[in-house]
């Protein structure tokens, strides 16, 4: 209790003395851990390279400026590919993640013993593998190109959408479901009349949210050959063509900012 008494009456503190000590101790420990991490990293760092960073940055800047604007006309196709990778990948992921989510949610799964663990494993496995790794594997399997990118985005997004969706399903209000059940509806009818209307806003929000993330992810898949603007970026970096790299970076920046603005707008309209 932070309240005690002394000769002048009651005394109040924010925490007890032990609480105060514990708080300070926790902060100190945290600080020490971060300091240790930083010292390990500093041991593994070649500081000459770090000190030369300003020179390096100035050099890079002078090569990037002025950007090679004429190159921008060749970027429409890669940007279109990037957009398609994100959009089609998200669409496929949504299609797959809906049944997976219904199987994973405790209140709608057909069986908690068999189906639910499998669904949860699908979600966890998909989420644990970065889309770049997926792309790496898929390029080997289906060959380099946009298709590998679409599948990589889809595989990574199934887990993401599935997880958010099944959490939304588990959080629905019980009373409308009870009300629909009370009318004598079948389990399919309960799903469509009691559950689906409740998760529609979440579903729409999740799809736009993931689409926005996927635009960003699809800009780098080209680095491993899975299509999109990353291909051009990789080629320009390998050719040390920095004035083109600058144009590509600006294109990526604009694309991502526009998609983020768009998705924020859609999400606001939905809510």
């Amino acid at each position: 209790m932070p309240v005690s008494r002394d000769s002048h009456g009651p005394v109040w503190r924010q925490r007890t003395r032990a609480g105060d000590l514990a708080t300070w101790f926790a902060w100190l420990t945290g600080l020490a851990v971060v300091a240790i991490c930083l010292s390990f990293i500093s041991d593994k760092t070649i500081w000459e390279f770090v000190w030369s960073a300003p020179r390096e940055a100035a050099d890079l800047g002078s090569r990037m400026i002025p950007p090679d604007w004429t190159y921008s006309t060749q970027l429409w196709r890669p940007l279109w590919d990037t957009f398609n990778i994100a959009t089609l990948g998200t669409a496929i992921a949504l299609g797959v993640s809906v049944p997976v989510a219904f199987c994973a949610a405790r209140n709608t799964t057909p069986s908690t013993k068999l189906v639910r663990p499998i669904a949860l494993f699908v979600i966890a496995a998909s989420r644990s593998i970065n889309s770049l790794i997926w792309a790496l594997l898929l390029v080997v399997i289906v060959g380099p190109g946009v298709f590998a990118g679409v599948l990589a985005i889809a595989f990574r997004s199934i887990g993401f959408c599935g997880k958010l969706l099944y959490e939304a399903i588990e959080e629905i209000e019980v009373s409308p479901v009870e009300a629909v059940t009370a009318t004598g509806a079948s389990s399919g009818q309960i799903l469509t009349y009691g559950v689906v209307p409740q998760i529609m806003p979440a579903f729409a929000g999740i799809s736009v949210f993931r689409w926005d993330i996927n635009i960003r992810e699809s800009t780098i898949l080209g680095l491993v050959g899975a299509g999109g603007i990353g291909l051009q970026l990789n080629a320009s970096i390998n050719n040390l063509d920095w004035s083109r790299v600058a144009v590509i970076l600006i294109a990526i920046l604009l694309t991502v900012i526009i998609s983020e603005w768009l998705s924020a707008k859609i999400r606001r309209a939905l809510s």
């Binding site: 760092t45 070649i46 390279f49 770090v50 960073a53 390096e56 940055a57 890079l60 770049l132 960003r216 992810e217 800009t219 780098i220 680095l223 970026l233 970096i237 970076l249 990526i252 920046l253 991502v256 900012i257 983020e260």
Partner: peptide, 16 residues
């Protein structure tokens, strides 16, 4: 706006 991998490419260029 820039994916971690893109940022990393540039920071590696700068800091080694």
């Amino acid at each position: 706006a820039f994916h971690e991998v893109l940022l990393a490419i540039f920071f590696v260029k700068l800091f080694g």
